[in-house]
């Protein structure tokens, strides 16, 4: 089976979620002795080609030039469609990042093929693709199987491992024609070098149990010490204590970090929806009956305002 994987390059940098998609793409392709190919659109993708090759791409289709410094949906759509055609891909994999979520359904519609969004499990069965995906905010998981290929699939970030298998890595520049109808005119970075919850390996999240917005300082300090991103419950986002970009949950971000520390968060279903697939969950809450303890691997019952600074202090040593 031939698989095509979309590489997301923003500001010259390759998003990690692309390599995860390439990892599972390589695995799918490998099972039947097929090949995995990659496609990237950027002003100058040169800097990422070695990495893409080292993670298993046999052909790297590129669309290059200063027009492509910023995202133009129609250009990326045309590039993926052209690369899918050239490579004869039976499956097109796109990471379900903000950009991937924007792009993937367009590719499926354009190719007029099935789309399986946000998968967390993927395998081959009798030459067809079987995928597992969460629905209803992760309250249930559905298994679907294609009855016709090709198929377009978006892969949930932080779910699949990047592979270390070397690919042939041949660069092939594509000529595409497209009519730009929308384009990114400006990209803004959130305050400084802040790590985004959707991409972080460790997240420290705070909720209403912190009592006052100023007390988020202790969450930030713990996050800094652990090299973690700061997350938040909806209660504190709605109260204006924290930006919406930090919200974890059904109407916020879905995260799957290695470690999730919930501080003063009760564990409402809508919050759990966003973080229950974390590898290890720690809950710090003064109420021993708080629902968050039901999903926590390690619970600490106590006052966050005392416990969290102590935790930071001990970790620093």
């Amino acid at each position: 089976m031939s698989v095509l994987v979309y590489m997301e390059v923003i500001g010259g940098e390759l998003k990690k979620a692309s390599l995860e998609a390439l990892g599972i793409g390589r695995e799918l392709a490998g099972e039947l002795g097929g090949s995995a190919h990659a496609v990237a659109v950027a002003d100058d993708p040169g800097g990422v080609l070695d990495t893409v090759k080292a993670h298993g791409a046999d052909t790297i289709y590129t669309v290059e030039g200063s027009d492509h410094a910023n995202y133009i949906p129609e250009a990326h759509l045309a590039a993926v469609v052209e690369a899918a055609d050239r490579s004869g891909a039976q499956a097109v994999l796109i990471p379900a990042t903000a950009r991937g979520r924007d792009l993937a359904p367009r590719v499926a519609a354009k190719l007029n093929v099935a789309f399986i969004p946000e998968v967390t499990g993927l395998e081959l069965e009798d030459g067809q693709i079987k995928a597992v995906r969460p629905e209803f905010a992760g309250k249930v998981y559905r298994t679907v199987k294609t009855t016709a290929l090709p198929v377009v699939i978006s892969t949930r970030p932080n779910t699949f491992d990047a592979s270390r298998a070397d690919g042939a890595g041949a660069r092939e520049q594509l000529e595409i024609s497209f009519e730009p109808k929308a384009k990114v005119v400006e990209t803004r970075k959130a305050g400084g070098e802040k790590l985004d919850v959707a991409e972080a390996d460790i997240i420290v999240s705070g909720g209403r149990g912190l009592k006052e917005p100023e007390n988020f300082k202790i969450v930030e300090e713990l996050a800094d010490t652990l090299g973690a991103a700061v997350g938040a419950s909806r209660a504190v986002v709605d109260a204006g204590w924290r930006p919406h970009a930090e919200q974890v949950g059904q109407t916020g971000k879905t995260v799957s970090p290695t470690l999730y520390i919930a501080v003063g968060i009760s564990g409402a279903v809508q919050h759990l929806a966003g973080m229950r697939t974390a590898k290890t969950i720690v809950a710090i809450n003064k109420d021993p009956d708080a629902p968050i303890f039901k999903v926590a691997d390690y619970g600490l019952v106590g006052d966050a305002l005392a416990v969290v600074p102590k935790l930071t202090e001990k970790l620093k040593k």
Binding site: R142, V144, D297, Y298
Partner: peptide, 25 residues
């Protein structure tokens, strides 16, 4: 172009434990 094969509850998280109370923990 897709068959829905099955739907299931999410895999249970392994039973966690309370490590203790307050700063002592």
């Amino acid at each position: 172009r897709l068959d829905s094969l099955a739907i299931a509850y999410p895999p249970e998280r392994p039973e966690g434990r309370i490590v203790g109370e307050g700063v002592e923990a």
